[in-house]
Simulated assay, not measured.
Amino acid sequence: MNRVMLATGLSALLLSACSVVGTRSAAVSGQLRGFSADQNLRLALVGYNNGQYTADGSQAQVIDKFLTGGYTLTLPRDVPYGTYRVIVFRDANNDDRYNAGDTVLSRYSGKLLVYAARDNAVFNGTKYGWNIYDGNTGQIQTTLLNNYDLQSAN
């Protein structure tokens, strides 16, 4: 029963991974690969834009290591425009935030989340709001922010 409820909740969050036209709210989703289930895994959005370092692990998130191997992370509206990454970290002190003492467990995939103030800002092809820029292919996702897979650094 709990797995059905978890699957239903995860499905609803995955459907919300679309950028909503006319707003800047979104969620990003993907698969977790190579992480062991016995770690205290959390997600954080990190970036350095306009002289401000952002490391926010308090956004709503679902990490499902057992049923689907995936995650969904709500993206904030109150960060500076620019580029960001999603990281997986071990929350050593259980405060749901990425702190200096927390260990980053994921490696950089070449993908960036772009929070654009207007169309074609930062990279050509981005739209106002949240986008995914794939540095490996140059492709940009502007509506469904999925396939932002996270790989273990080990």
Rank of each mutant, 00 (worst) to 15 (best):
V4K: 03
A7H: 06
A7T: 09
L10H: 06
A12F: 03
L14V: 01
V20S: 10
V21T: 11
V21I: 12
R24C: 07
S25Q: 14
A27R: 10
S29L: 04
F35W: 02
S36Q: 15
A37C: 04
Q39V: 15
N40M: 13
N40L: 08
R42K: 15
R42L: 11
L43R: 00
A44G: 08
A44E: 08
L45C: 06
G47Y: 10
N49E: 12
G57H: 09
G57I: 13
G57Q: 04
Q59V: 04
I63K: 00
F66H: 08
F66Y: 08
L67D: 02
T68G: 00
T68A: 03
T72S: 15
P76L: 10
R77D: 12
Y81T: 09
T83S: 09
Y84T: 10
R85T: 06
V88P: 06
R90E: 15
D91A: 12
D95C: 04
Y98V: 10
Y98E: 11
A100E: 11
G101A: 11
G101D: 08
S106M: 04
R107I: 08
Y108T: 12
Y108I: 08
S109E: 08
L113W: 02
V114T: 05
Y115L: 12
A116P: 02
A117D: 09
A117K: 06
R118E: 11
D119N: 15
A121R: 03
V122A: 08
F123H: 15
N124D: 09
G125V: 09
T126N: 03
G129D: 01
I132M: 02
N136F: 03
T137K: 05
G138M: 01
T143C: 12
T143A: 10
L144W: 07
N146Y: 08
Y148K: 03
Q151T: 12
